[in-house]
Amino acid sequence: MYKLLVIEDDVMMSDMLSMYMSGEGYEIKQAENGEKGLQLVEQFVPDVLLLDLMLPDWDGIELCARIRENSSVPIMIVSTKSEVSERVQALRAGADDYLCKPFSMHELSARVEALIRRSRIMQASAAESIQPEGGIAAQKEIKLDAERRLLLVRGAFVETTFSEFEIMKLFLSHPGKVFSREDLINAIRGYDSFVTDRAIDVHIVNLRRKVEKNPKEPHHIRTVWGVGYKYAPEDVPAPQ
């Protein structure tokens, strides 16, 4: 049974989400404010988190960033705020998905399932990739730690969001291959979930900050103008 944490101050909405997802087979915990939510992230250790942006004690974006500092749990924002700027801020803060109220419970359930499914698949795939014989392990500077869903960058562990981890897994599995933004969207969301080209660009900016020696002149995560992005391993010369 997967565990789901709902951080939502609207009691009716929280109860509705909890009842529906409980009926789908999830173990549920509810938090009516950010402080209780932070406590439950540590104590309950959820497999996925639903987070409202408007809470009585925390700004939802700030709370998302705070949770992301210590946890790689997939975070889905559920909010009445539909502006693109809000979505971008949430993604930059570490959110993995964004669903605007009102929404279909069926869609919510499908998105939660997708987040957990991809999380498990990536963990299993990364476990294989870090074996001594694996191709990814041959990359000297950057490796994946499946158990903790972290990147090992030049000997130091770096925490990533759910989506960042999946993008890096894709890059490391196919060094040199050019991925369009649509390729990356399909890899981390599936065909029926909300995500934009802008969201991919935000993830790339954040990943460069985490893996590149000089994010302004990236060696590994390179832009292929007019197409998308590719990953260059250590033995590929830096662009001139």
Rank of each mutant, 00 (worst) to 15 (best):
V73C: 02
F103W: 08
M12N: 15
S71A: 13
M12G: 12
V112H: 02
E147H: 13
M1Q: 11
T80I: 05
R149K: 15
K216V: 04
D96N: 14
G34D: 09
A93Y: 04
M1E: 13
K216H: 07
S163F: 00
V202M: 08
P218V: 00
D52F: 01
D145E: 13
D10P: 02
Y26R: 03
D59C: 02
I130G: 08
S173V: 03
D10E: 15
I61F: 04
Y20A: 07
S82Y: 01
A114H: 07
E164V: 06
V48A: 13
L49P: 12
G228I: 01
P233G: 07
G37R: 05
L144D: 02
V73H: 03
L207G: 00
Q39R: 14
P56T: 09
K29Q: 15
C64Q: 04
G134L: 05
I142A: 02
P233W: 00
S22D: 14
R68N: 14
D235L: 08
E62H: 11
R208H: 03
P233E: 07
K169D: 12
P239Q: 03
P56I: 10
I75Q: 04
A156S: 15
S163T: 15
A156L: 13
G226L: 01
A31R: 05
C100L: 06
M168Q: 10
L91N: 01
Q240N: 12
H219M: 11
L151W: 02
N70T: 14
S85G: 06
I136E: 15
E8H: 05
D97A: 11
I167M: 14
P218A: 06
G34R: 07
L38D: 11
R148G: 15
I185P: 02
Q89I: 00
Q39W: 09
Q240R: 10
M105T: 10
N70M: 10
E166A: 14
M1V: 13
T196A: 02
R208K: 11
A187Q: 01
N33F: 09
P56L: 00
A95F: 00
A232T: 05
M168Y: 06
L184R: 09
A93D: 02
G226F: 03
Y229D: 04
T196I: 00
H219F: 03
Y191A: 12
V158A: 08
K213E: 10
E35H: 12
H203N: 10
V195T: 12
V45Q: 15
I136F: 05
M76I: 11
P46E: 07
L40Y: 14
K230D: 04
R208V: 06
L5N: 08
L99T: 07
L38Y: 06
S104Q: 13
I75K: 02
A156R: 13
I185M: 15
S14N: 05
D15C: 01
R68G: 01
D97C: 06
E159L: 11
V41K: 02
S22C: 10
Q39T: 14
I121S: 10
A199L: 00
E159S: 15
M54W: 09
Y191T: 15
G228C: 05
D235W: 12
S119D: 15
